[in-house]
């Protein structure tokens, strides 16, 4: 344990550089086909916003926030789509792509022969996922400001919150991916992800669920992210936002720890 953790703490400069070299590798691997994938990740939440936020919003007079204010449905839905897009962007990179590099390309088997350690691979891959996730978040926030769904000032605050969301989902996804045996396992993950997307206070306030179910929903990471981003973009959540931030930070740390431990076990055979 000590031998695992101590050098990691002492050698932050080395860790930063080695993780950065992992990001550099991904930049070098970025080819034209990839751009199409990147664009699809941005377009998806915008379509949801247009179809459900504005489309369904037409049928609804407005929706009450916990603090009693009534806002347009699109205003209610937009921060949730921001959270969902941060989740999707991060997960795409740290689940599918990570698993492919790990199990099929055997990319990390080559990298561990260098001074780069599994923890640094994990951190580098997560950082790269966040470059992608942050781009989605920034673009979506720009759309929200343009459509008058939030203000410029709030959007500036929402950006780091969205990045944090990405970090939390990215590291949790990476940890889960180390347990995956084949591509089939990802179907389960996609189902779980879609369930989260539908029921995490995204389209319907969690307050409408029965108590037990509501409790279940409120401990899910996407609910906490939606809650945080809605707070920042629209307001009205009070100090609970701080709890959300702590929750997401803890999830990030847990995911990274599990992922790098698992990688040590799988790679250093």
């Amino acid at each position: 344990m000590v031998t695992l953790v101590l050098p990691r703490l002492l050698d932050t400069a080395g860790t930063t550089r080695r993780s950065a070299s992992m990001v550099e590798r991904n930049v070098a691997a970025l080819k034209s086909v990839y751009w199409l994938l990147l664009i699809s990740g941005f377009v998806e939440p915008v379509l949801y916003l247009l179809s459900i936020g504005f489309g369904v919003g037409r049928l609804i007079d407005g929706i009450a926030l916990p603090d009693g204010r009534v806002v347009e449905y699109a205003v209610f839905v937009a921060p949730a789509m921001l959270a969902a897009s941060a989740m999707t962007g991060a997960l795409a990179e740290t689940t599918f792509n990570f698993f492919g590099k790990f199990k099929y390309q055997k990319l990390y088997d080559g990298i561990i022969a260098t001074p780069v350690r599994p923890f640094e691979i994990a951190l580098g891959e997560l950082s790269w996922a966040m470059v992608r996730g942050s781009a989605y978040s920034a673009a979506f926030l720009a759309v929200m400001v343009t459509m008058g769904l939030t203000t410029g000032g709030r959007a500036l605050l929402a950006f780091p919150a969205a990045v944090l969301t990405g970090f939390a989902f990215g590291s949790a996804g990476m940890a889960l991916s180390t347990f995956m045996r084949s591509w089939q396992d990802f179907d389960l993950m996609a189902s779980a992800q879609f369930t989260l997307f539908l029921f995490s206070g995204t389209f319907i306030p969690a307050e409408v669920y029965p108590a037990a179910l509501r409790w279940l929903v409120e401990v899910t990471p996407l609910y906490r992210s939606v809650h945080l981003l809605r707070d920042v973009c629209v307001g009205g959540g009070g100090w609970w936002g701080l709890a959300d931030v702590l929750y997401l930070l803890a999830l990030t740390a847990l995911g990274l720890t599990v992922a790098s431990r698992r990688m040590v076990g799988l790679l250093y055979r």
Partner: peptide, 8 residues
């Protein structure tokens, strides 16, 4: 070149 970068 990428591999060299892993070595700093």
């Amino acid at each position: 070149t990428t591999y060299a970068r892993y070595f700093g």
